[in-house]
Design a protein around this nucleic acid. Structure first.
Lengths: 233, 233
DNA sequence: ACATTTTGTCTGGTTAACCAATTTGGACAC
DNA sequence: GTGTCCAAATTGGTTAACCAGACAAAATGT
């Protein structure tokens, strides 16, 4: 356990120092947006680190949309201006890894929106998939089995039906961490599971009936316990 | 331009096929959560692709919390259960790249929340940073210069002050794409910039006064035009 | 029989060499 | 002077070989 953390932190430190150096380089050389960064080889030599490390750092900055790597051509600075670039890199360097509370808080926010959008935009195909996950959930609970996974898949189906790919991506990103933490802190119990069947069904029916505000209300009800838990920690 | 798209699609296709194969492998071998995946070398040999491709695919699944690579040990299946795993991989494979509308929609949702949280939780340090970005914005607009970057940095400062690292990460992720698209579609003009000074100041004051609902209201006002634009496309 | 050390075989991480595609710069024909 | 074309240099991507650390089983000493 200790080792894992150490290694991660090490990587993070190296990466962050490389990112800082890249930022300094851009500032020093006054690289305008769209201009080409020195080649990966050049950078690895200049910073005295391996090219893999350079690539990792570039990939991270590419993830946040600050750089753009094009094969057989070079790595380019995004077209967002030098000031925004500096500000964002600063933020990225200082970014903390998310805590449980922030995850739950964000999940609730996202889901109250996706359920509303799903009610407005769901297709017949979406309904079919949601119904399938709902049935799977019901079956598991009826047999007294743990149904956290099915619960989760139902919520992901809603995110998909919302038709908003950004929110869908975000939900996919935070869901496993939520699950893991739920299991760790024993948030769910049997009572909630049985109660969950009715709540899920209510949400599903509201989405099918294309009633966004009812859907949102049902989701809010569904989150009632979680909400209290989140704000009591 | 054409080449860039092609390359990206190629990579995506290879990656997705590898992810599918990994999923099949997990299902076929009935790998329980926490169990070890075959080594990267083994996988690259079995699937007849390079180890780099395997690593990329693993990194993607690691990003979504489905796998966990530990140095000098192996790659492990996350502890979320086989059903959730299959469902999530399915979703990841079918995930579309986000469109502009979904970005704006998500941004508005996030910011209406972060501004509220910022009003509740902001520290003096947060206020200082927000004031700095606000001044920079005001100065640029006063000189008739383009101030999109400063605008953005003010909003990022709010996200930071919200104290929610998950939302902060998400804001960082979507902001550059928003900016790029704004520039492309010429969403902002001079009038909005001048109007923006007052609106930003109002938001800042509400956060300083720790008035969450006023802060949210001011942000809503700030997004009025954007909102209309978003839902008219 | 037990505890300790050794040793052999994993792992993911790192590196350097190689590849195909692209860009570039100048030689050369007009 | 101008346009065209080809070879050389440069690019990010790919590969294969190597590394230090982790782990487990076997060997060894008590």
């Amino acid at each position: 356990m200790k080792i894992e953390v150490l290694v991660k932190d090490d990587n993070r430190e190296i990466q962050n120092s490389i990112i800082s150096k890249i930022r300094d380089l851009i500032n020093l050389k006054n690289l305008e947006p769209g201009e080409k960064l020195p080649s990966e080889r050049m950078l690895s030599e200049k910073f005295e680190v391996s090219r893999s490390n350079i690539r990792e750092a570039i990939q991270k900055l590419e993830f946040y949309g600050l750089l753009k790597s094009i094969p057989q051509s070079g790595t380019f600075v995004a077209n967002i201006g030098i000031i925004a670039l500096n500000g964002m890199i600063e933020d990225i360097l200082r970014l903390k890894s998310p805590d449980f509370k922030s995850l739950v808080e964000t999940r609730i926010l996202l889901e109250l929106k996706t359920v509303r959008l799903a009610a407005l935009r769901r297709t017949e195909e979406d309904l079919k998939q949601m119904k399938a996950t709902l049935e799977a959930y019901r079956e598991k609970v009826r047999n007294g089995q743990d149904a956290v996974q099915e619960d989760l898949l139902f919520h992901l189906a809603i995110a998909k039906a919302s038709g908003n790919s950004t929110m869908n991506t975000f939900m996919l990103k935070i869901t496993p961490e939520i699950i893991t933490n739920f299991a760790k802190y024993h948030v769910c119990d049997k009572n909630q599971a049985v109660l969950g069947i009715q709540e899920h069904t209510d949400i599903y029916n509201a989405i099918r009936a294309q009633d966004p505000s009812l859907a949102k209300q049902m989701m809010k009800q569904h989150f009632k316990e979680l909400y209290k838990y989140c704000y009591s920690v």
